[in-house]
């Protein structure tokens, strides 16, 4: 059974169509990197998967539950990490995890918080207010928040945005640990080097559609950039050909 199954997904904001009949399938345990230029619809797609946004048309199933009908059940299976930390600045690291743990009804919460703070390397700063944290520390704590309830699926929306090299390295380690535990991960990123290293599958999204998809074993080392450029280039050529055909028909 697919962990995520999307058929003919369309998302419109007013008259503007962002996702144009998208199809997407993810098996349990896969780490899928979602690549694409700005405005391709990556964030919109992740917001639909996380039930923060409603699909206009199409069929979306996450962990066997239909969206938007079973949104609460889907949310219980998801952990979401975006470029914003989704944390409260006036609460400490520990209190933030405690709050989100309560919202997810996590059992044995105290022990779980200790584990999470250790995983993200913030045990010593557990009593400090989040607004005093650096961007990298906030993002590490955000990972703790995203997995405090032990989700089956992780959605990562450009998690490296605004991080320096050291912070990105730490984030790499944490994400690797989490992904190695058999979770299904979908990550959008513009950082192809990191993405190539982490993901097991690469999908390229352009103008609201998946235009190319490949597994890690099908691309040579450092070959992701070439694969990505080729996919975007082919998409542009196809688009121009379609325009030409339409002109000729007129």
């Amino acid at each position: 059974m697919s962990m995520i199954k999307v058929k003919n997904l369309v998302k419109m904001f007013g008259l503007k169509t962002i996702l144009k009949g998208m199809n997407f399938d993810v098996e349990p345990g896969e780490f899928v990197a979602f690549l694409g230029p700005n405005g391709a619809g990556k964030t919109t797609f992740l917001r639909i998967l996380s039930s923060l946004s409603m699909p206009s048309f199409g069929d979306v199933k996450v962990a066997g539950y239909q969206l938007p009908q079973h949104a609460a059940a889907v949310r219980s299976k998801l952990g979401v990490l975006s470029h914003q930390p989704l944390l409260y600045g006036d609460l400490t690291a520990e209190e933030n995890l405690e709050f989100f743990g309560r919202m997810y009804n996590v059992n044995d919460l105290g022990k779980r918080i200790d584990e999470m703070l250790e995983v993200v390397g913030l045990s010593k700063r557990r009593g400090d207010l989040v607004r005093t944290f650096s961007r990298g520390m906030q993002q590490r704590l955000a990972i703790g928040r995203a997995v405090v309830h032990n989700p089956e699926i992780l959605l990562l929306d450009e998690p490296y945005t605004g991080l320096d090299q050291d912070a990105s390295g730490i984030l790499d380690d944490v994400l690797r640990t989490i992904a190695s535990e058999g979770r299904t991960v979908i990550m959008t990123s513009h950082d192809l080097v990191r993405t190539e290293d982490m993901a097991s599958r690469f999908d390229v999204l352009s103008k609201g559609k998946v235009i190319a998809s490949t597994n890690k074993k099908n691309i040579s080392k450092n070959g992701l950039l070439a694969f990505y450029r080729d996919a975007i280039e082919r998409s542009k050529i196809e688009e121009e050909e379609k325009k030409r055909d339409r002109k000729n028909k007129k």
Binding site: V80, L87, Y88, M103
Partner: peptide, 14 residues
Amino acid sequence: DRGCLDGLLLAPVD
């Protein structure tokens, strides 16, 4: 601030 509303809306609650 910091997208906290999204964090709340992601919780598996009514």
